[in-house]
């Protein structure tokens, strides 16, 4: 009997963390598998989450593969399905299928410095690789995490960042000045130039709003990072997650299967349809 690739497993919302509020509210959900049929995933992969009657959405898995008890998803309230998630309560049962997509080649990066650059909810897709790198701290060189949000209230994973400071160089920023803010004021790409991490034996990983990614990649180039040293993760509208429904393609690649992780060298060779 063939696997029914469209039939979701049942997930239970075991925890809800309110990350940010307002027009672009973000909540983080811990999802358990009450039937014990959970799946393993790799850094960078996604899962198709659904609320029955509202529909499905592809969401990146924000927890590290090393965490086996649950999967974590940070969801910005944007449309029909994500709003339904924001209205969900602990204990609610949802649909989940996956994992989908490729992964960050973390094992290839052993012994190298890692520079992570995130903005807004774009931190979520690179969060598992940050968490995993920190958990395997001795395998890597210097780890730097840049993260910026509009205001200090919009910063995700605040408690986690405090813990992260023990094992990584954390560089936070907010877009506009505000009273009592101890760190950088300005956009993420500017903060990156300000701290100017060295490209020597380093890998840079970035995700955030498209405009941020554009300038971060430009600036990384100025800092001397080669295209092969830069990784990002892209998103497109998805429906099936299994390379059939035809809408998430960038050139010949279906992002749900061949992506979402690309080196800038690879991405440059594809049409700019994302």
């Amino acid at each position: 009997m063939m696997d029914n690739i469209y039939l979701p497993k049942i997930g239970r919302i075991a925890g809800i963390e309110e990350e940010t509020q307002g027009g672009r509210a973000i909540k983080t959900f811990k999802v358990e598998f009450p039937d014990g049929d959970g799946f393993e995933h790799a850094c960078g992969q996604c899962a198709m989450l659904s609320i029955f009657g509202r529909g499905e959405s592809m969401i990146s898995i924000a927890s590290s593969p090393l965490v086996k008890d649950y999967k974590q998803f940070s969801i910005m309230r944007m449309g029909r399905v994500t709003t339904a998630f924001h209205e969900a309560r602990i204990g609610d049962l949802i649909g989940i299928r996956g994992p989908y997509g490729n992964q960050f080649p973390l094992d290839d990066w052993k012994g190298r410095d890692l520079v992570f650059i995130g903005g807004g909810v774009g931190l979520a897709p690179i969060w598992p690789v940050i968490q995993t790198a920190v958990a395997r701290r001795e395998e890597f060189g210097k780890i730097t995490v840049f993260y910026g949000a509009r205001t200090s209230r919009d910063i995700m994973y605040k408690a986690d960042f405090e813990r992260l400071k023990g094992s990584a160089d954390v560089q936070l920023s907010v877009d506009a000045p505000e009273a009592g803010w101890p760190a950088y004021v300005g956009f993420v790409p500017a903060n990156l130039m300000d701290k100017a991490p060295s490209p020597d034996n380093a890998i840079a990983v970035t995700c955030g709003p498209p405009i941020m990614i554009k300038f971060v990649i430009q600036n990384l180039g100025q800092l001397g990072f080669a295209d092969e040293q830069i990784y990002t993760t892209i998103e497109n509208k998805m429906k099936c997650g299994v390379g059939k429904c035809g809408r998430c393609n960038v050139g010949k690649d279906y992002v749900c299967v061949k992506g979402p992780v690309y080196s800038w060298a690879e991405l440059k060779s594809l049409p700019q349809e994302y």
Binding site: G23, R77, M78, G79, R80, T82, T83, A84, H86
Partner: peptide, 9 residues
């Protein structure tokens, strides 16, 4: 366009 508008269409 707010999430509410999109969600409640």
């Amino acid at each position: 366009t707010s999430a509410e508008e999109k969600a409640n269409r």
